[in-house]
Simulated assay, not measured.
Amino acid sequence: MTPVDPRALRDAFGGFMTGVTVVTTRNPSGAPLGFTANSFSSVSLDPPMLLVCLGRSLSSHGIFATCTHFAVSVLAEGQEGVSNVFASFKGDRFARIAHGADANGIPVIDGAVAQFSCRRTQSISAGDHTILLGQITGFTHGDGLGLGYARGQYFSLGLERAAMVVDSTRRIVAAALVERDGHVLLEEAPGGMRPPQFEFKAPGNLRAAMEARLAGSVRLGSAYSIFDDRPTNTHYTCFLAQATQDCALEGRLVPIEDISGLTFETPAIAALCKRFALEHSTRDFTLYVGDEASGDRHEIR
Rank of each mutant, 00 (worst) to 15 (best):
Ala95Tyr: 00
Arg93Leu: 09
Asp284Arg: 14
Arg120Gln: 04
Arg26His: 06
Pro47Gly: 03
Phe139Ala: 08
Ala103Gly: 07
Ala202Lys: 09
Asp284Trp: 01
Leu33Ser: 00
Thr21Ala: 07
Gly19Met: 15
Thr68Phe: 10
Ala76Asp: 02
Gly34Val: 04
Gly105Leu: 01
Thr237Ser: 15
His183Ile: 00
Met193Asn: 01
Val184Arg: 03
Gln245Ser: 11
Ser44Thr: 13
Ala212Asp: 14
Thr2Met: 13
Thr140Ala: 14
Ile269Ala: 06
Ala293Asn: 11
Ala163His: 13
Arg219Cys: 12
Ala215Gly: 09
His280Ala: 11
Asp291Ile: 00
Arg219His: 14
Gly158Met: 10
Thr232Lys: 13
Gly14Gln: 06
Gly78Trp: 07
Phe239Val: 09
Gly127Met: 07
Gly81Leu: 11
Ala150Ser: 03
Ser225Asn: 11
Val173Phe: 08
Leu262Tyr: 11
Ile106Tyr: 00
Leu51Arg: 06
Ile172Tyr: 10
Arg93His: 00
Val165Ile: 14
Ala98Ile: 07
Gly261Asp: 12
Ser117Met: 12
Ala103Arg: 08
Asp46Gly: 13
Asn233Trp: 07
Glu265Thr: 05
Gln115Ser: 14
Asp258Lys: 11
Pro231Cys: 06
Asp284Val: 11
Pro6Ala: 14
His141Tyr: 01
Ala31Tyr: 03
Asn27Glu: 09
Ala103His: 00
Leu177Asn: 03
Ile63Asn: 03
Leu58Ser: 07
Val166Cys: 15
Val178Ala: 08
His280Arg: 07
Asn205Pro: 01
Gln115Arg: 15
Val74Cys: 10
Leu132Asp: 01
Asp102Lys: 13
Ser281Ala: 15
Ala31Ser: 09
Val218Asn: 09
Gly204Thr: 02
Val108Tyr: 01
Arg171Gly: 07
Gly91Arg: 06
Ile136Leu: 15
Phe86Arg: 12
Glu77Asp: 04
Gly55Phe: 05
Ala71Gln: 02
Gly191Ala: 14
